[in-house]
């Protein structure tokens, strides 16, 4: 039996070029590692009865109610088959950062592909929005399992070069998402916290569930650089700084921790799941976050 678990490791995944294949390996690897199938409970949670109208699948008629009332009632379940997940994938230039390893963008693509694969396998719908300072690509939600190919293809087409403007994009996308669903923001969120939270608040106002997958490179979290370095901004083209990293390390770490802390607090305040993911972590972190959120939705 193939050891799928290894495909959760970004180092392994980095060697596989086919994103679709990788998504399958990731998900199946993850699933095989669980003791309990995540499929259980899905689509079987009773929600309400409604009267049968022609065209409804007779397999969903509640015959017990018919026995008592002599009426046809369709047994409706929680919107499990109607769950729409939208992935907002940040393709700004800052997502390009890597240190001879997987870039944040690539890592984010793996997450999106894997979750999309999982969602589509569940007959749920998945949509994709790739953005930077504006929406670059928008794939409407679809539950067609073959849709994963489109998602993967679109993600592969993008070259992260532009700046981020999350609040603008979120407001824009919020207007376009007609159906309430799960919005998964996959980004490094290198923008003003207030603007980000403003966008999230907007999504929440539209009653969307939101998961923030905060993608960071370990270098950005720990700042382990030693040698004198000319830092060139990926998004700020003219921004350069020649500095001894050791001299500024503590100040930098303080800044980024403040940012994360502020962001996290904001997310909690808006009842948004915040998950910090670093590119050296196994992909199960992101999958677990999604499934946890999915589970809580099912119980509501």
């Amino acid at each position: 039996m193939e050891d799928y678990l290894k495909y959760l490791n970004p180092k392994v995944l980095n060697k596989i070029t086919n994103l679709e294949l990788k998504a399958r390996l990731i998900v199946e690897g993850y699933i095989s590692g669980l003791h309990k199938s995540p499929y259980h409970g899905f689509s079987v949670e009773f929600a309400q009865h409604r009267e049968y109208v022609p065209g409804d699948d007779i397999r969903h008629i509640d015959w017990k109610v018919y026995g008592k009332s002599n009426r046809y009632y369709i047994k409706e379940y929680e919107e499990e088959t109607n769950l729409v997940s939208y992935f907002l994938l940040d393709s700004s230039a800052s997502m390009r950062y890597s240190n001879d390893d997987m870039s944040k963008y690539d890592y984010a693509c793996h997450i999106v592909a894997s979750l999309s694969y999982l969602i589509l396998q569940q007959q749920d719908a998945a949509g994709l929005c790739i953005f930077d300072q504006e929406i670059r690509t928008l794939l409407p939600a679809s539950s067609n399992p073959a849709y994963i190919g489109d998602i993967a293809h679109q993600m592969a087409q993008v070259d992260p070069v532009e700046k981020t403007s999350i609040d603008v994009v979120i407001k824009d996308i919020a207007g376009r998402l007609k159906k309430r669903g799960l919005v998964v923001i996959v980004s490094d969120l290198f923008d003003d916290v207030s603007k980000i939270l403003e966008g999230i608040r907007h999504l929440r106002h539209r009653r969307h569930d939101v998961i923030v997958l905060h993608i960071l490179h370990p270098d950005e979290l720990h700042f382990p650089l030693q040698r004198l370095t000319m830092f060139e901004g990926l998004e700020e083209i003219d921004s350069k700084l020649l500095v001894n990293p050791r001299a500024i390390q503590s100040a930098y770490l303080k800044e980024i921790q403040n940012f994360i802390s502020e962001l996290k607090s904001g997310c909690i305040a808006h009842r948004v799941d915040y998950v910090q993911v670093t590119t050296d972590q196994n992909l199960d972190v992101a999958l677990s976050a999604y499934l946890a959120n999915r589970g809580s939705r099912a119980r509501r």
């Binding site: 230039a93 800052s94 997502m95 390009r96 950062y97 944040k104 490094d188 290198f190 490179h217 950005e220 650089l225 040698r227 004198l228 370095t229 000319m230 830092f231 060139e232 901004g233 990926l234 998004e235 700020e236 921004s239 700084l241 020649l242 500095v243 500024i248 100040a251 930098y252 303080k254 800044e255 980024i256 940012f259």
Partner: peptide, 24 residues
């Protein structure tokens, strides 16, 4: 000499780096 011999790094979190540098 060492100011001439440095590594170049394209940095994403420049915002925080600049903020840290400015404050210190």
């Amino acid at each position: 000499i060492f100011r001439r011999r440095f590594q170049r790094v394209e940095w994403g979190a420049m915002k925080f780096l600049l903020a840290a540098y400015q404050s210190n």
